[in-house]
Protein backbone atom coordinates (compact mmCIF):
# COMPACT_ATOMS: atom_id res chain seq x y z
CA UNK A 1 0.00 0.00 0.00
CA UNK A 2 2.90 2.31 0.78
CA UNK A 3 4.36 1.53 -2.61
CA UNK A 4 1.01 2.34 -4.19
CA UNK A 5 0.87 5.65 -2.36
CA UNK A 6 4.40 6.54 -3.39
CA UNK A 7 3.69 5.59 -6.99
CA UNK A 8 0.56 7.73 -7.01
CA UNK A 9 2.51 10.66 -5.58
CA UNK A 10 5.26 10.16 -8.18
CA UNK A 11 2.67 10.25 -10.99
CA UNK A 12 1.30 13.51 -9.70
CA UNK A 13 4.65 15.31 -9.93
CA UNK A 14 4.68 15.70 -13.74
CA UNK A 15 0.97 16.54 -13.63
CA UNK A 16 1.51 19.33 -11.10
CA UNK A 17 4.52 20.54 -13.04
CA UNK A 18 2.54 20.64 -16.29
CA UNK A 19 -0.35 22.44 -14.64
CA UNK A 20 1.91 25.01 -13.01
CA UNK A 21 3.71 25.67 -16.29
CA UNK A 22 0.48 26.07 -18.20
CA UNK A 23 -0.92 28.47 -15.62
CA UNK A 24 2.33 30.44 -15.57
CA UNK A 25 2.23 30.94 -19.32
CA UNK A 26 -1.49 31.75 -19.40
CA UNK A 27 -1.30 34.28 -16.57
CA UNK A 28 1.66 36.00 -18.12
CA UNK A 29 -0.06 36.13 -21.48
CA UNK A 30 -2.97 38.15 -20.05
CA UNK A 31 -3.46 41.34 -22.02
CA UNK A 32 -3.90 43.76 -19.15
CA UNK A 33 -0.75 45.33 -17.93
CA UNK A 34 -0.15 45.18 -14.20
CA UNK A 35 2.49 47.91 -14.38
CA UNK A 36 0.08 50.36 -16.01
CA UNK A 37 -2.54 49.54 -13.48
CA UNK A 38 -0.19 50.00 -10.54
CA UNK A 39 1.16 53.23 -11.92
CA UNK A 40 -2.21 54.93 -11.53
CA UNK A 41 -4.21 57.26 -13.70
CA UNK A 42 -1.65 59.94 -14.30
CA UNK A 43 1.44 57.85 -14.81
CA UNK A 44 4.17 58.72 -17.26
CA UNK A 45 5.60 56.01 -19.55
CA UNK A 46 8.83 56.23 -17.50
CA UNK A 47 6.97 55.45 -14.28
CA UNK A 48 5.30 52.46 -15.94
CA UNK A 49 8.67 51.25 -17.25
CA UNK A 50 10.16 51.61 -13.76
CA UNK A 51 7.44 49.41 -12.26
CA UNK A 52 7.84 46.89 -15.04
CA UNK A 53 11.58 46.68 -14.38
CA UNK A 54 10.94 46.47 -10.64
CA UNK A 55 8.64 43.46 -11.14
CA UNK A 56 11.08 41.92 -13.60
CA UNK A 57 8.51 42.09 -16.41
CA UNK A 58 11.07 43.51 -18.81
CA UNK A 59 12.91 40.17 -18.85
CA UNK A 60 12.04 37.28 -21.22
CA UNK A 61 9.29 34.88 -20.16
CA UNK A 62 11.57 31.81 -20.23
CA UNK A 63 14.01 33.44 -17.85
CA UNK A 64 11.23 34.40 -15.42
CA UNK A 65 9.72 30.95 -15.69
CA UNK A 66 13.00 29.22 -14.84
CA UNK A 67 13.52 31.55 -11.89
CA UNK A 68 10.01 30.89 -10.60
CA UNK A 69 10.26 27.10 -10.95
CA UNK A 70 13.60 26.89 -9.13
CA UNK A 71 12.32 29.14 -6.37
CA UNK A 72 9.11 27.11 -5.94
CA UNK A 73 11.16 23.91 -5.64
CA UNK A 74 12.85 25.43 -2.60
CA UNK A 75 9.48 26.42 -1.15
CA UNK A 76 9.76 30.09 -2.12
CA UNK A 77 6.56 31.26 -3.82
CA UNK A 78 7.71 34.85 -4.00
CA UNK A 79 5.88 37.95 -2.81
CA UNK A 80 2.63 39.59 -3.85
CA UNK A 81 2.97 42.26 -6.55
CA UNK A 82 0.24 44.10 -4.82
CA UNK A 83 1.32 44.53 -1.21
CA UNK A 84 4.70 42.84 -0.94
CA UNK A 85 3.38 40.18 1.42
CA UNK A 86 4.92 36.72 1.08
CA UNK A 87 2.64 34.54 -1.07
CA UNK A 88 2.93 31.71 1.44
CA UNK A 89 1.96 33.97 4.35
CA UNK A 90 -1.15 35.06 2.48
CA UNK A 91 -2.14 31.45 1.87
CA UNK A 92 -1.33 30.34 5.42
CA UNK A 93 -3.52 33.18 6.74
CA UNK A 94 -6.52 32.44 4.55
CA UNK A 95 -6.48 28.70 3.80
CA UNK A 96 -7.34 27.54 7.35
CA UNK A 97 -10.47 29.69 7.23
CA UNK A 98 -11.73 28.07 4.05
CA UNK A 99 -10.60 24.69 5.35
CA UNK A 100 -12.57 25.03 8.57
CA UNK A 101 -15.63 26.01 6.55
CA UNK A 102 -15.21 23.08 4.14
CA UNK A 103 -14.41 20.48 6.82
CA UNK A 104 -17.33 21.60 8.95
CA UNK A 105 -19.61 21.47 5.91
CA UNK A 106 -18.45 17.94 5.11
CA UNK A 107 -19.01 16.80 8.68
CA UNK A 108 -22.49 18.28 8.58
CA UNK A 109 -23.09 16.71 5.15
CA UNK A 110 -22.03 13.28 6.43
CA UNK A 111 -23.93 13.50 9.71
CA UNK A 112 -27.11 14.53 7.93
CA UNK A 113 -26.66 13.06 4.44
CA UNK A 114 -25.86 9.43 5.35
CA UNK A 115 -28.85 8.94 7.68
CA UNK A 116 -31.17 10.54 5.12
CA UNK A 117 -29.83 8.23 2.42
CA UNK A 118 -30.09 5.18 4.68
CA UNK A 119 -33.60 6.12 5.69
CA UNK A 120 -34.72 6.59 2.11
CA UNK A 121 -33.19 3.25 1.09
CA UNK A 122 -34.65 1.22 3.92
CA UNK A 123 -38.07 2.83 4.31
CA UNK A 124 -38.97 3.14 0.65
CA UNK A 125 -42.41 4.36 -0.34
CA UNK A 126 -43.53 7.86 0.47
CA UNK A 127 -40.57 8.61 2.76
CA UNK A 128 -38.18 7.62 -0.01
CA UNK A 129 -39.91 9.71 -2.65
CA UNK A 130 -40.19 12.66 -0.29
CA UNK A 131 -36.54 12.57 0.69
CA UNK A 132 -35.36 12.07 -2.88
CA UNK A 133 -37.55 14.96 -3.99
CA UNK A 134 -36.15 17.17 -1.24
CA UNK A 135 -32.58 16.41 -2.31
CA UNK A 136 -33.39 17.33 -5.90
CA UNK A 137 -34.73 20.69 -4.74
CA UNK A 138 -31.74 21.23 -2.43
CA UNK A 139 -29.32 20.46 -5.24
CA UNK A 140 -31.05 22.89 -7.56
CA UNK A 141 -30.77 25.82 -5.14
CA UNK A 142 -27.70 27.92 -5.94
CA UNK A 143 -25.57 28.32 -2.82
CA UNK A 144 -25.15 32.10 -3.16
CA UNK A 145 -28.92 32.55 -3.29
CA UNK A 146 -29.34 30.36 -0.25
CA UNK A 147 -26.59 32.36 1.46
CA UNK A 148 -28.45 35.61 0.78
CA UNK A 149 -31.72 34.19 2.09
CA UNK A 150 -30.02 32.84 5.21
CA UNK A 151 -28.43 36.24 5.92
CA UNK A 152 -31.71 38.01 5.40
CA UNK A 153 -33.60 35.76 7.77
CA UNK A 154 -31.19 34.50 10.43
CA UNK A 155 -28.81 37.47 10.59
CA UNK A 156 -30.73 40.60 9.64
CA UNK A 157 -34.28 39.74 10.78
CA UNK A 158 -33.67 37.38 13.71
CA UNK A 159 -30.19 38.52 14.65
CA UNK A 160 -29.17 35.02 15.71
CA UNK A 161 -25.98 34.82 13.74
CA UNK A 162 -23.54 37.44 12.43
CA UNK A 163 -24.14 38.56 8.84
CA UNK A 164 -20.50 38.70 7.89
CA UNK A 165 -16.97 37.98 9.04
CA UNK A 166 -14.96 35.28 10.72
CA UNK A 167 -13.42 34.77 14.16
CA UNK A 168 -10.42 32.56 14.66
CA UNK A 169 -10.99 29.26 16.49
CA UNK A 170 -8.15 30.04 18.89
CA UNK A 171 -9.61 33.46 19.70
CA UNK A 172 -13.06 32.18 20.65
CA UNK A 173 -14.41 28.73 19.77
CA UNK A 174 -18.00 29.87 20.38
CA UNK A 175 -17.67 32.87 18.10
CA UNK A 176 -15.85 30.75 15.53
CA UNK A 177 -18.79 28.37 15.36
CA UNK A 178 -21.32 31.18 15.45
CA UNK A 179 -19.70 32.90 12.45
CA UNK A 180 -19.55 29.65 10.50
CA UNK A 181 -23.13 28.44 10.99
CA UNK A 182 -24.67 30.37 8.09
CA UNK A 183 -21.82 29.93 5.58
CA UNK A 184 -21.68 26.23 6.39
CA UNK A 185 -25.44 25.89 6.00
CA UNK A 186 -25.22 27.57 2.60
CA UNK A 187 -22.31 25.46 1.44
CA UNK A 188 -23.34 22.10 2.91
CA UNK A 189 -26.86 21.88 1.48
CA UNK A 190 -25.78 20.56 -1.90
CA UNK A 191 -23.29 18.14 -0.31
CA UNK A 192 -25.95 16.78 2.02
CA UNK A 193 -28.12 15.99 -0.99
CA UNK A 194 -25.30 14.47 -3.01
CA UNK A 195 -24.16 12.27 -0.15
CA UNK A 196 -27.73 11.27 0.73
CA UNK A 197 -28.44 10.24 -2.86
CA UNK A 198 -25.18 8.37 -3.16
CA UNK A 199 -25.80 6.56 0.12
CA UNK A 200 -29.33 5.67 -0.95
CA UNK A 201 -28.37 4.18 -4.30
CA UNK A 202 -25.34 2.31 -2.91
CA UNK A 203 -27.48 0.86 -0.12
CA UNK A 204 -30.29 -0.13 -2.47
CA UNK A 205 -27.77 -1.92 -4.63
CA UNK A 206 -26.38 -3.80 -1.64
CA UNK A 207 -29.78 -4.61 -0.16
CA UNK A 208 -30.53 -6.63 -3.29
CA UNK A 209 -27.37 -8.70 -2.98
CA UNK A 210 -27.22 -12.36 -2.05
CA UNK A 211 -25.30 -11.82 1.17
CA UNK A 212 -28.14 -9.73 2.54
CA UNK A 213 -30.60 -12.52 1.81
CA UNK A 214 -28.24 -14.96 3.52
CA UNK A 215 -27.89 -12.73 6.57
CA UNK A 216 -31.63 -12.30 6.85
CA UNK A 217 -32.17 -16.03 6.39
CA UNK A 218 -29.69 -16.65 9.20
CA UNK A 219 -31.93 -14.56 11.43
CA UNK A 220 -29.61 -11.61 11.84
CA UNK A 221 -31.33 -8.59 13.29
CA UNK A 222 -32.51 -6.25 10.50
CA UNK A 223 -30.81 -3.25 12.09
CA UNK A 224 -27.57 -5.12 12.16
CA UNK A 225 -28.01 -6.11 8.51
CA UNK A 226 -28.59 -2.53 7.49
CA UNK A 227 -26.15 -0.63 9.67
CA UNK A 228 -23.34 -3.12 10.12
CA UNK A 229 -23.22 -4.87 6.74
CA UNK A 230 -25.00 -2.93 4.07
CA UNK A 231 -23.88 0.52 5.19
CA UNK A 232 -20.28 -0.62 5.41
CA UNK A 233 -20.37 -2.11 1.94
CA UNK A 234 -22.07 0.98 0.61
CA UNK A 235 -19.33 3.15 2.08
CA UNK A 236 -16.92 2.88 -0.87
CA UNK A 237 -18.88 5.02 -3.36
CA UNK A 238 -19.92 7.36 -0.56
CA UNK A 239 -16.29 7.91 0.41
CA UNK A 240 -15.37 8.60 -3.20
CA UNK A 241 -18.20 11.13 -3.37
CA UNK A 242 -16.90 12.59 -0.12
CA UNK A 243 -13.53 13.20 -1.75
CA UNK A 244 -15.14 14.83 -4.78
CA UNK A 245 -17.31 16.96 -2.51
CA UNK A 246 -14.24 18.16 -0.62
CA UNK A 247 -12.82 19.57 -3.83
CA UNK A 248 -16.18 20.86 -5.06
CA UNK A 249 -16.87 22.63 -1.75
CA UNK A 250 -13.48 24.32 -1.77
CA UNK A 251 -14.38 25.77 -5.16
CA UNK A 252 -18.00 26.46 -4.30
CA UNK A 253 -17.12 28.34 -1.15
CA UNK A 254 -15.62 31.20 -3.18
CA UNK A 255 -18.95 32.89 -3.78
CA UNK A 256 -20.26 32.11 -0.31
CA UNK A 257 -17.13 33.67 1.18
CA UNK A 258 -17.92 36.76 -0.84
CA UNK A 259 -21.50 36.96 0.45
CA UNK A 260 -20.44 36.53 4.09
CA UNK A 261 -17.20 38.54 3.74
CA UNK A 262 -15.31 35.55 5.09
CA UNK A 263 -11.62 36.29 4.51
CA UNK A 264 -10.79 32.80 3.22
CA UNK A 265 -8.75 31.43 0.38
CA UNK A 266 -11.62 31.99 -2.06
CA UNK A 267 -11.72 35.74 -1.41
CA UNK A 268 -7.94 35.81 -1.47
CA UNK A 269 -7.98 34.14 -4.91
CA UNK A 270 -10.65 36.44 -6.32
CA UNK A 271 -8.88 39.55 -5.05
CA UNK A 272 -5.55 38.38 -6.46
CA UNK A 273 -7.17 37.60 -9.82
CA UNK A 274 -8.90 40.96 -10.01
CA UNK A 275 -5.63 42.72 -9.24
CA UNK A 276 -3.62 40.64 -11.71
CA UNK A 277 -1.38 39.61 -8.81
CA UNK A 278 0.32 36.80 -10.73
CA UNK A 279 2.62 35.39 -7.98
CA UNK A 280 -0.29 35.01 -5.56
CA UNK A 281 -2.57 33.35 -8.13
CA UNK A 282 0.21 30.97 -9.15
CA UNK A 283 1.00 30.05 -5.55
CA UNK A 284 -2.64 29.37 -4.74
CA UNK A 285 -3.17 27.27 -7.88
CA UNK A 286 -0.08 25.12 -7.38
CA UNK A 287 -0.80 24.51 -3.71
CA UNK A 288 -4.50 23.79 -4.24
CA UNK A 289 -3.67 21.39 -7.05
CA UNK A 290 -1.22 19.64 -4.72
CA UNK A 291 -3.90 19.50 -2.02
CA UNK A 292 -6.37 17.91 -4.45
CA UNK A 293 -3.82 15.23 -5.33
CA UNK A 294 -3.24 14.46 -1.66
CA UNK A 295 -6.97 14.37 -0.87
CA UNK A 296 -7.70 12.00 -3.74
CA UNK A 297 -4.91 9.75 -2.54
CA UNK A 298 -6.23 9.83 1.01
CA UNK A 299 -9.71 8.86 -0.24
CA UNK A 300 -8.26 5.91 -2.15
CA UNK A 301 -6.36 4.75 0.90
CA UNK A 302 -9.45 5.10 3.07
CA UNK A 303 -11.42 3.09 0.52
CA UNK A 304 -8.86 0.31 0.77
CA UNK A 305 -9.09 0.36 4.54
CA UNK A 306 -12.89 0.13 4.51
CA UNK A 307 -13.20 -2.34 1.66
CA UNK A 308 -10.54 -5.07 1.42
CA UNK A 309 -11.74 -5.83 -2.11
CA UNK A 310 -10.06 -2.61 -3.24
CA UNK A 311 -6.55 -3.76 -3.99
CA UNK A 312 -3.90 -1.13 -4.19
Amino acid sequence: MIRYALRRLAYSVPMLFGLASLVFVLLNALPNDIAERRAGEEASPEAIAAIRADLGLDRPLTERYWEWVTAVLTGDFGVSWHNGQSVLTGIVQTAPITLSMVVLSLVVALVIGVPIGALAATRGGLADRGLVGATVVAMAVPNFWLALVLVLFFALSMGWFPATGYVDLSASPGEWLRHLVLPVAAVATVSISVIARQTRSAMLENLGRDYVRTLRAAGVDERSVVYKHVLKNAATPVLTTFGIQFVALSGGSIIVEQVFAVPGLGQHTLTALARGDVPVVLGILVLTAAAVVVINLAVDLMNAAVNPKVRL
Binding site: L148, A155, L156, A163, T164, G165, Q258, A261
Partner: peptide, 18 residues
Amino acid sequence: LRIYTDANAMYNALVSGQ
Protein backbone atom coordinates in the same frame (compact mmCIF):
# COMPACT_ATOMS: atom_id res chain seq x y z
CA LEU B 1 -10.97 48.98 9.00
CA ARG B 2 -12.90 46.10 7.49
CA ILE B 3 -12.87 45.27 3.80
CA TYR B 4 -16.13 44.28 2.12
CA THR B 5 -15.52 43.82 -1.58
CA ASP B 6 -19.16 42.87 -2.03
CA ALA B 7 -21.54 45.83 -1.68
CA ASN B 8 -24.25 43.57 -0.30
CA ALA B 9 -21.95 42.13 2.38
CA MET B 10 -21.04 45.69 3.42
CA TYR B 11 -24.70 46.60 3.68
CA ASN B 12 -25.48 43.47 5.73
CA ALA B 13 -22.56 44.21 8.06
CA LEU B 14 -23.89 47.74 8.60
CA VAL B 15 -27.48 46.69 9.19
CA SER B 16 -26.47 43.96 11.63
CA GLY B 17 -24.10 46.29 13.49
CA GLN B 18 -20.85 44.60 12.57
